[in-house]
Nucleic acid binder design. Structure first.
Lengths: 208, 208
DNA sequence: GTCTATAGGCCGATAGAC
DNA sequence: GTCTATCGGCCTATAGAC
């Protein structure tokens, strides 16, 4: 999506930052090159010197945002004596990440423009949901090896856990219906219940 | 969202149909009033005689589409001897409905423009996901009364079932990554596993 | 490299004839 | 009610001065 970045000049970084802010806030259509130039304190001609067209600028910005926003979950709990507590920590961290305004903004823009820019959908999926599923599947395998879990289809189990976490919180946030009452109690309740259902099926019958 | 409809004239119906097709296919920005007029075989002035602005036309079209596309699940299975089979039928019906191009188109448009037209997000949520949850929650209560299920938080159970059904199929379809392999085997597998996990937690310990 | 100025085109909305 | 014709404005993209 992004070419090599050979020391982007200050002006170029201003352009990238301005375009990122505007595209994330308003999407593709409503943002004009004039707005980007003004926000970046650069003339339109300079803007076009860096990026050959609005399409290219948009695809670059959003593609990079997808990569940059990949879930930063490098450290899942490793020393486990309570598998439920570990799952709740992972779940709450993921759900809070998903509901961040930044994440929501990227998702909205990608959904809106994935028809016009088909590569965006794949880039987002690979950097976001798929990256989480891969990492979490690996973690689940570790817990199986440690005797905490017993799963036949690990990929499906990971999907089910992620899905129950999102539940309708993610969709509500996507549609701008962010119920303030959800933020604290609702999220914790959803996570707790998701872990309960997950363990009901996948907890190893004999621990240790 | 829609006012009373006092016998819409043929021209008006042409306009509504043309606008519905175009907005669902391309979203708000890329569709011009000139395109709508041409598609409806009507002049722009006539178009503006029926709808005072592009905003109003769009909100009317999409709001009505949300209402019209509310899940038509009036008849859930009632005579149950296999609760698993009943859940699989409900699940497969819902998931197939969600993945229809029509449903996807509405969802994409609503996500894209819910920032500009805040009422659309609420209308979609009420007519779609919330309507399903309400109906399904009622059905679950019936099955509890019949002794097939034992659920503490019925609303949460309904959410979990719906979420596990969507899993990542819905997001993939939303982003235009409709894997052709999903259509048959993938959907059935997802439904079967969702029901299995759901029943693992919520099946009544003593049937009958 | 960066600017100002503008070409060239499409859009939303309206005025006025019929 | 419906049309044609057009206004005023904003857009992407570029040419040419510095």
């Amino acid at each position: 999506m992004s070419d090599q970045d050979p020391l982007p000049s200050p002006k170029q970084r201003q352009v990238l930052e301005a375009a990122r802010m505007l595209f994330m806030a308003h999407g593709y259509g409503p943002v004009s090159m004039e707005m980007v130039a003004k926000q970046a304190q650069v003339s339109k001609a300079t803007l076009y010197a860096y990026f050959p067209s609005k399409d290219r600028l948009f695809a670059t910005i959003v593609g990079d945002a997808c990569l940059r926003a990949s879930v930063d979950e490098s450290s899942y709990p490793t020393e486990i004596d309570d598998i439920g507590a570990a799952l709740r920590e992972i779940g709450e961290r993921l759900l809070r990440f998903l509901l961040q305004p930044n994440t929501m903004a990227i998702y909205r823009v990608v959904v809106a423009e994935s028809a016009r820019f088909p590569e965006l959908g794949a880039a987002f999926m690979a950097a976001g949901p798929q990256a989480f599923l891969n990492r979490f599947t690996l973690w689940l395998r570790g817990q199986m090896a440690a005797g905490h879990l017993a799963i036949d289809d690990v990929g499906m189990a990971a999907e089910q856990f992620g899905a129950m976490l999102r539940s309708s919180h993610f969709m509500r946030a996507t549609l701008g219906l962010t119920d303030p009452a959800d933020d604290a109690a609702g999220i914790e309740h959803t996570v707790r219940e998701a872990v309960a259902t997950f363990l009901c099926r996948y907890r190893a019958t004999q621990e240790g």
